[in-house]
């Protein structure tokens, strides 16, 4: 057995979800290698080679890999995967976009978003928005899995010394091209990696009112999240969405403000260590999962909470 991790990066640094994916692969008790596909990514290659837990780092470089087009990357992954028993990638928008395409090229049925490794061929994964957990077994010779990062700890980003091996690049498929990107910038921690997440819902009433949550988040070094209703209403950008079809988070502290607690929202945050709910409706379903609930008007409670935390 030998596992391959597809290293996700932004052209400059390795994304932290990759570190969690390596922990999942380590559960197989076999050597783990990494694959970096990039265009002139010296800092990515350097960073990836230092991650604890990777034996070899395969590196393939070319302009066709610059924007992570699945049409260009899937053929390379499919070719390299033949030398492995397992190929894992984080279940991020990058991994979800790429791995099924690899699977079809190899005639392998990938397993999406695994939350536990039971044995070399058996995995657990949430289905129905996390309302059930399936234990599934693959009969394919090569297992392709996307990995739910919040279900596995991160390996240290440093301390390793992987041997770098160059791999010839595959051709540009010529099917798609990159036009542009709108990255939401923020000085706060990344939503999926933050220790504290403050999320707002429709109850906030406007994008302006999210400033109140930002102050609270800044007081505790947290990130900002949102319900779909808040995103749909245009209060915040789409990448703030937590839930079944948004991001999966599991911080130490999750504060849900003006969020009712629909199952699709709970799917993205109910593995948080401690959940606080602030809602004026005492019967809101969010209180069924909250460790601490505070019933009342958020416009009064949130500033009060921020002030109390600033004092300490």
């Amino acid at each position: 057995m030998r596992a391959l991790i597809i290293v996700e990066h932004d052209g400059v640094a390795v994304k932290s979800a990759t570190l969690h994916t390596i922990t999942a692969a380590k559960k197989l008790n076999c050597p783990v290698d990494g694959l970096v596909m990039c265009n002139a990514g010296a800092s990515v290659i350097d960073g990836a080679s230092k991650i604890t837990g990777l034996e070899k780092l395969l590196v393939s470089e070319g302009a066709q890999y610059k924007d992570d087009l699945a049409e260009n990357e899937a053929p390379l992954v499919a070719q390299i995967a033949r030398n492995y028993t397992h190929v894992f990638v984080a279940a991020t928008s990058f991994g979800k976009n790429l791995l099924p395409r690899v699977g079809a090229l190899m005639d392998v049925a990938p397993i999406s978003e695994i939350s536990a490794v039971e044995s070399a061929d058996t995995f657990k994964r949430p289905i129905y928005a996390g309302n059930a957990i399936a234990t599934v077994q693959s009969s394919d010779a090569i297992k392709l899995c996307t990995v739910r990062a919040t279900s596995f700890d991160a390996v240290p980003a440093t301390g390793g010394n992987a041997a770098i091996e160059k791999v010839a690049a595959t051709a540009d498929a010529g099917l798609s091209s990159f036009v542009g990107r709108e990255v939401s910038k923020s000085d706060r921690p990344e939503l999926t990696a933050a220790k504290v997440v403050i999320s707002g819902g429709r109850g906030l009433g406007s994008g302006d009112n999210f400033k109140m949550l930002e102050q609270l988040a800044d007081t505790v070094g947290g990130a900002i999240g949102a319900s779909r209703a808040a995103v749909d209403a245009g209060f915040v950008p789409n990448d703030y969405q937590v839930g079944q079809t948004g991001k999966i988070v599991a911080p130490n502290l999750y504060v849900a403000v003006g969020i009712s607690g629909a199952i699709q929202h709970l799917a993205g945050m109910k593995d948080s260590k401690v959940i606080v709910a602030i809602n004026k409706d005492p019967d809101a379903p969010i209180f069924n999962v909250a460790d601490y609930g505070l019933v009342g008007d958020l416009f009064q409670i949130v500033p009060e909470l921020t002030a109390a935390l600033q004092k300490k």
């Binding site: 049925a109 059930a132 957990i133 399936a134 077994q137 009969s139 394919d140 069924n288």
Partner: peptide, 26 residues
């Protein structure tokens, strides 16, 4: 192609407590 061996309820979270005010919450 993928065999489902079993399906379980997710580990359920029990509801915690309601706190009366911000000071208690903190």
């Amino acid at each position: 192609r993928i065999k489902t061996l079993r399906v379980d309820e997710p580990g359920s979270r029990k509801a915690g407590i309601k706190v009366p005010d911000v000071a208690t919450l903190v």
